[in-house]
Design a protein around this nucleic acid. Sequence first.
DNA 1: CTCTGTTATGTTACATCACAACATAATCAA
DNA 2: TTGATTATGTTGTGATGTAACATAACAGAG
Lengths: 151, 151
Amino acid sequence: MSKLQRILSHAEQQCQINGSRLTDKRKKVLSGLLQSDRALSAYELVDYCNETYDENFAAMSVYRILEFLEQEQLVHKLNLANRYVACGHITCDHQHEVPQFLICTDCQSVKEFSISRSTLGSIKRQVEQANFHLVSEQIELNCLCKSCAAA
Amino acid sequence: MSKLQRILSHAEQQCQINGSRLTDKRKKVLSGLLQSDRALSAYELVDYCNETYDENFAAMSVYRILEFLEQEQLVHKLNLANRYVACGHITCDHQHEVPQFLICTDCQSVKEFSISRSTLGSIKRQVEQANFHLVSEQIELNCLCKSCAAA
DNA sequence: CTCTGTTATGTTACATCACAACATAATCAA
DNA sequence: TTGATTATGTTGTGATGTAACATAACAGAG
Ligand SMILES: [Zn+2]
Ligand SMILES: [Zn+2]
Ligand SMILES: [Zn+2]
Ligand SMILES: [Zn+2]
């Protein structure tokens, strides 16, 4: 069983537990993201799926499917880049924490990582001091990945 | 002399020093942002200027003007919200540091603030450990402002 | 296995967004 | 005045995101 298959079946189980269905189309969109080494826009996914699976996804469908996958924590939306990535922890059993993302502005590769609790804590403290309140611990940072930085 | 006037003339001087011109149109766009209590999208600015000054700005012009104002550090672009705010430090004489922004996802009000050097340092360190490199210290965080959080 | 309500997907049509490309006008430096 | 540079006008287009309504697939009750 390939790694992709393993992740997909794990995702399917997870959906069953949540009382939702990982349909064929949804699986294809998720696969697209899983097989991509970078974050994809909705329309890139439309093209990818249509070429790879000889399907006829409409943009509308992909947006709806992405919304679903996001709710199921299988996919993350990167607001800073208006793109989507597959969650890197689908096969993990532990509860998914709110992740932070490093996005390469050159090649759109993404690293899902966790900033230390203490750093996150001091960010939150300083935000509160400024009389604002974080709506989410999801933090996105524009970066260069190692290979793009070298070039 | 009103506060607005003072900021504008300060901005004009700054442009002269840089060998650029703060034209009438550019002044109007900047004024629009200065008088707004929240971040505005390019098209909101188009509408605002056309209504307020009885002008006929085209979207294209506003995009160009915003690009100019950004170069002059008079305006900041918020990538997370696809909106623009006037710099809060135009009349400061000290060198402008890279700012961080707290953006209310409800009312689009924005606080330009500075995270502590030490926190910024530890963020950078953790990013480097993940083999990425920050392209900018500009960090944008989705928040709720105090009044929106209350409601 | 029907029937029926719910969920998923298809289809069409729009509103918005961001900018390319070329044209004209204003400004400046000599 | 002239020529170069900069700013703005104008037109057109590709990309984005979603509303509104229609049909299909599914699941559970009877
Ligand atoms: Zn994840
Ligand atoms: Zn890269
Ligand atoms: Zn500023
Ligand atoms: Zn608010």
